[in-house]
């Protein structure tokens, strides 16, 4: 898309675009290039010698069972967070779209978690599920379940999934509600006159018409679960116990800043970049085509 009418000036456009271009090159292009370059190098144990190793870092990475485990764990984590937050948000949005009395109040209360930082969301749930002081842990123990996210990897995973999904519910809720309110009332009324009940109407009219929103949210939520949940995990379980809550992004951080294994960390960054670019391309292609039935 282009403007028909434009201005002509020799220096002004360059002056205007310069700040953003400079920052982009210094803080995006350069580091990204550096990551790709370093992923092809290997340092010795003392950091004295660096040599070019080609794709060896990548080969080692994918031969490493720990990395493959992390990959699968991240996938499971993302799918759980996405499903949990999207399904509950859809449920709340459909209900909020139905009620007349109090709809605005419900909406105002349901968007609170958006303001909460992922790390803080983690700390709040960490507190509730803390085996010695948390009230939810107390209830679980009362039910006879031996809840301890400090020792049990599955418990720790459940904790970070709940905290991450909780934070994302408000975002999904707002988009689903906007999508629902954009559906023409006349379609729903016509179906009701033809004798379709609420459940039938939801599956054969509302849900298909909501599919562009759903698809968009699917991609956004997967990206969120991959990258933005670092704070949630780092502030609570620190990737543990053992490796049980270490996701891909946590591993990049851990190997790069704690383990100081730059070659491997850079190779992991490159893998993540490829995943993000893939997701973005998928999103753009489908949004162009519009998911519809």
């Amino acid at each position: 898309m282009q403007k028909r009418v434009t201005f002509r000036h020799l220096t002004l456009p360059y002056l205007f675009i310069l700040p953003q271009l400079a920052i982009t090159i210094v803080f995006f292009i350069w580091p990204a290039g550096e990551a790709i370059y370093q992923s092809l190098l290997r340092q010795d144990a003392f950091g004295l010698n660096t040599r070019f190793v080609g794709f060896e870092n990548f080969e080692r990475l994918f031969a490493d069972p720990l990395y493959i485990d992390t990959l699968w764990r991240t996938l499971g984590f993302s799918v759980s967070v996405t499903l949990l937050s999207m399904l509950s948000a859809l449920l709340f949005a459909v209900m909020a779209d139905h009620v007349i009395r109090g709809a605005t109040t419900y909406k105002t209360l349901l968007i609170w978690p958006y303001a909460v930082a992922p790390a803080i969301a983690g700390v709040l749930w960490w507190f509730l599920f803390n085996p010695s002081v948390g009230i939810l842990a107390y209830l679980l123990q009362g039910l006879g379940y031996d809840w301890n996210p400090f020792l049990d990897g599955d418990d720790a995973m459940i904790l970070v999934v709940i905290a991450s999904a909780w934070k994302q519910v408000s975002y999904n809720f707002l988009f689903f509600l906007a999508g629902l309110q954009a559906i023409p009332r006349s379609l729903i009324e016509a179906a009701a006159i033809d004798g379709a009940g609420p459940v039938k109407r939801f599956w054969s009219i509302v849900f298909p018409l909501l599919s562009p929103t759903t698809f968009f949210l699917l991609v956004v939520n997967v990206v969120y679960a991959f990258f933005d949940t670092f704070g949630t995990i780092h502030a609570t379980t620190s990737g543990g116990p053992g490796q049980s809550t270490t996701t891909l992004i946590y591993k990049v951080f851990n190997d790069g800043f704690i383990g100081l294994n730059y070659g491997s960390s850079a190779a992991q960054s490159v893998v993540l970049m490829i995943i993000v670019i893939g997701l973005t391309v998928v999103q753009f292609r489908y949004i162009e085509r519009r998911v519809h039935y």
Partner: peptide, 28 residues
């Protein structure tokens, strides 16, 4: 609002960053 040489090039340099969150290239 302007036509200038390398406009499309600048455009793409900037828009490629839409794809890369800070977390991904954190170490470099």
């Amino acid at each position: 609002y302007f036509r200038f040489p390398f406009r499309t090039f600048c455009f793409w340099i900037i828009f490629i960053t839409l794809m890369l969150p800070v977390e991904v290239r954190i170490v470099p």
